[in-house]
Simulated assay, not measured.
Amino acid sequence: MSAPVVQGWCPGAHRPMMSGDGLVVRVRPRLARLSAAQTLGLCDLALRFGNGTIDLTNRANLQLRGVAEDDHQPLLAELSALNLLDAEPGIETRRNILVSPLYQPGDLTARLTQALIDRLGDLPALPAKFGFAVDTGAARLLAGDSADIRLERGASGLILRADGAETGRLVTEDEAIDRVIDLAMWFAERFTSDTRRMARLIATQALPEEWQGHAPGPTAPALQPGNSEIGPIYGAAFGQLPAAELRGLVGASGAAALRVTPWRLFLLEGGA
């Protein structure tokens, strides 16, 4: 297996991070969503290979902790069987995408996120924690969460905004991902060891006017535990999900899927 990564690295599935009780293996759900079968399978893996708890991260990812080094490769095989793993480690690292959790299947957020996933191989080399946000609902939910390039809805339509800039560039859906790649290229040609995030870079270098001029729309109130149009929202104390209890909850609710958020909350899509 690959050598465990030292503290400070953003762990992934292929490149775990060592902690006091074993490896931390991060799973990045596509479109912030795991089907019910994937959720139940991940719970089983947490009980079999980890410490029995699944962590929610502030990047809307999931982490298994306490994984023994000898169990890393068998765990990867099981994650791959659940379709929770990118075959190429480089693509997994780039799939650092926050998604507004209240999207509907096939809507603009879902379409843009999938289009970005399909084009990850076209991105330049970027710092490990460089990320994207797709937040194109009527009101923004991810404005306070970490992302370097944002797709949002503005008064005039869809905008692409560099994090740290007050305004963004008006784009069409068809050209949006091309422009995301262009902005990533602009960043990749200029960042330094001291400016590895977009907001830090544009604080030191002027962002070209072509990337500005259109204000984003309003922000939405923070989600709270309760009901939503997607399904019930639950809070996770300390961002921790006991795998056995989560397995029982998903099964009892009849949910079709679990959606994760950056806020220690999760949604049971279609659940009672």
Rank of each mutant, 00 (worst) to 15 (best):
P105E: 15
P105G: 11
D107E: 09
D107S: 10
D107V: 06
L108I: 10
L108R: 13
L108Y: 01
T109W: 04
A110I: 00
R111T: 09
R111E: 05
L112W: 02
T113C: 05
T113D: 02
T113I: 01
A115V: 00
A115S: 06
A115W: 00
I117V: 09
R119N: 06
R119C: 13
L120G: 13
L120F: 11
G121H: 14
D122M: 06
L123T: 10
P124W: 06
A125N: 05
P127F: 11
A128I: 12
A128S: 11
K129V: 11
K129Q: 10
K129T: 10
K129P: 03
F130H: 12
F132Q: 09
F132S: 05
V134R: 00
V134Q: 05
D135K: 05
A138Y: 04
A139K: 15
A139G: 01
R140T: 01
L141P: 00
L142I: 12
A143I: 04
D145F: 13
D145Q: 12
D145E: 13
A147L: 06
D148I: 03
D148R: 06
I149R: 03
R150C: 10
R150E: 13
E152P: 00
E152S: 07
R153W: 06
R153P: 00
G154W: 05
G154P: 04
G154S: 12
I159W: 02
L160I: 04
R161P: 00
A162D: 02
A162H: 04
A165K: 04
A165C: 06
T167P: 03
G168P: 07
G168H: 05
G168V: 07
L170G: 13
L170T: 13
V171Y: 02
V171C: 08
V171D: 02
T172F: 06
D174R: 15
D174Q: 14
E175I: 12
E175D: 14
E175A: 11
A176W: 01
A176S: 13
I177W: 06
D178E: 14
R179S: 08
V180T: 04
V180W: 11
V180G: 07
I181V: 15
A184F: 04
A184V: 01
M185L: 08
M185A: 11
A188P: 01
A188H: 08
A188F: 06
A188T: 02
R190V: 13
R190W: 12
F191H: 15
T192K: 02
S193G: 15
S193T: 14
D194Q: 14
R197K: 09
R197H: 15
R197W: 08
M198F: 14
A199G: 00
A199E: 15
R200W: 15
A203P: 02
T204E: 11
T204C: 06
Q205S: 04
Q205C: 05
A206W: 00
L207H: 05
P208H: 05
E209I: 07
E209P: 00
E210Q: 14
E210F: 01
E210H: 08
E210R: 12
